[in-house]
Amino acid sequence: MQLGTRWTAGDQPPAAVPASLHEQLAAVEADLPPGNPPPRWTLTWLEGRPVAELDSGVIVTIDRDGAVVVRHDDEDEFA
Rank of each mutant, 00 (worst) to 15 (best):
E29D: 05
D63N: 15
V28Y: 11
E77N: 06
I62H: 00
L46D: 10
A19R: 12
E29A: 07
A67S: 11
V51Y: 05
W41M: 01
D74N: 15
A19V: 11
G66H: 05
P50C: 08
L54N: 02
V28T: 10
I62K: 10
E53V: 10
P39A: 09
S56C: 10
W7D: 01
D11C: 03
A79T: 14
Q24S: 13
G48T: 05
A79E: 15
T5H: 01
P39M: 09
T61S: 08
L32V: 09
D73I: 13
D65R: 15
D76L: 10
R64V: 15
A15D: 10
W45K: 03
T44M: 00
V17R: 04
I62E: 08
T8D: 01
P37Q: 08
G35D: 12
A27I: 01
S20C: 14
E23Y: 03
M1N: 08
L21P: 04
V17D: 02
E77L: 12
Q2E: 07
E75V: 04
M1D: 07
F78V: 11
D65Q: 13
L32K: 11
V28K: 12
T5G: 02
V28D: 13
Q2T: 13
P13M: 06
E29P: 02
L46P: 02
A9I: 01
P33A: 14
D31A: 15
E47Q: 13
W45F: 12
D11F: 07
E47T: 08
D74S: 12
E77C: 03
R64D: 15
G57W: 00
W41E: 08
S56E: 10
A16G: 05
M1T: 00
W7H: 02
D73Q: 14
L21R: 02
V58R: 05
P33N: 12
E29T: 02
T5N: 06
V58I: 01
S56W: 10
A30C: 00
V58L: 03
L3C: 04
I62V: 15
E75R: 11
H72W: 11
D73C: 13
H22E: 03
L21M: 05
I59D: 00
H22T: 03
G57D: 01
D74L: 14
L46T: 08
P18K: 05
D65V: 13
D55Q: 11
R71D: 12
F78Q: 13
L3N: 04
R49C: 04
E23S: 12
G4N: 02
E75Q: 13
V68G: 14
I62A: 08
V60M: 04
A19L: 05
T61D: 04
L54G: 08
G57S: 01
W41H: 05
H22A: 01
V28F: 11
A16Q: 00
P37K: 03
Q2F: 09
L21S: 03
D65G: 11
W7Y: 03
A26P: 06
T42S: 10
D74T: 14
A19Q: 12
L43G: 02
L54Q: 05
P14M: 02
A30P: 07
N36M: 14
Q12V: 11
N36H: 14
W41V: 02
A15G: 07
Q24V: 12
D65H: 12
L21E: 07
D76T: 09
L21A: 06
T5R: 03
A19W: 06
P34D: 15
V70S: 14
D55R: 00
D73K: 15
V17C: 05
T5D: 03
E47Y: 09
S20N: 11
H22V: 04
A67E: 06
V60C: 00
